[in-house]
């Protein structure tokens, strides 16, 4: 499987935003990787019901994603991966999936979260995962839309701590 882009956005499939990423990084499949949603039949069907019409969409757990990635059947398949949190990207990378760059799009604000930018807030667990990704040499970019300027996510994270 060839990953066109890996994006973190906890709104997952979210209207025009996702449509634009799919246009900018064309792929045959859109895969939502989330333990939480894959195990919740209601959220799974609702997520699939808002998927763009022109792309095959699936919702899988990180564990299943790791198996699928190595299935020779998908050798030539291109896919966009959509995550809700960095720890699940880390899980894939630790399973040997070659993700070199992560686009950080949206992580909603909540009390007890560290507010980084208008669109991104992180928990302590997220920070640990991001630091680990950074240590592994994964490039982390903050960008809401493909047409926006790229920002170095780790720099912003370090400046706010």
């Amino acid at each position: 499987m060839r990953i066109t882009i890996a994006r973190i956005d906890d709104r997952f499939i979210h209207g025009q935003v996702l449509t634009k990423w799919v246009k900018a990084f064309p792929a045959e499949r859109l895969i939502v990787v989330s333990e939480e949603i894959a195990n919740d039949p209601m959220r799974k069907i609702l997520t699939l019901s808002v998927a763009p019409a022109n792309i095959k969409t699936s919702v899988v757990t990180p564990n299943k994603m790791s198996k699928v990635f190595n299935n020779p059947k998908y050798n030539k398949t291109t896919a966009m991966l959509l995550f809700g949190k960095p720890s699940e990207v880390l899980e894939l990378i630790e399973n040997g999936i070659p993700i070199k760059e992560i686009n950080v799009g949206g992580m909603r604000f909540d009390k007890d979260k560290l507010h980084l930018t208008e669109s991104v807030s992180v928990t302590q667990e997220d920070i640990v995962a991001f630091e680990k990704l950074h240590t592994l040499g994964i490039k982390l970019e903050l960008r809401q839309l493909p047409s926006d300027t790229r920002h170095d996510f780790i720099k912003i994270l370090h400046s706010k701590q």
């Binding site: 499949r29 895969i31 069907i45 699939l48 019901s49 808002v50 998927a51 699936s58 299943k64 299935n71």
Partner: peptide, 19 residues
Amino acid sequence: EEVKKTEIKRLSQTEDDLS
């Protein structure tokens, strides 16, 4: 209708499911 369509699609197009 959107939910119904999604459910029908999932039942009829098993190749969409990753394995």
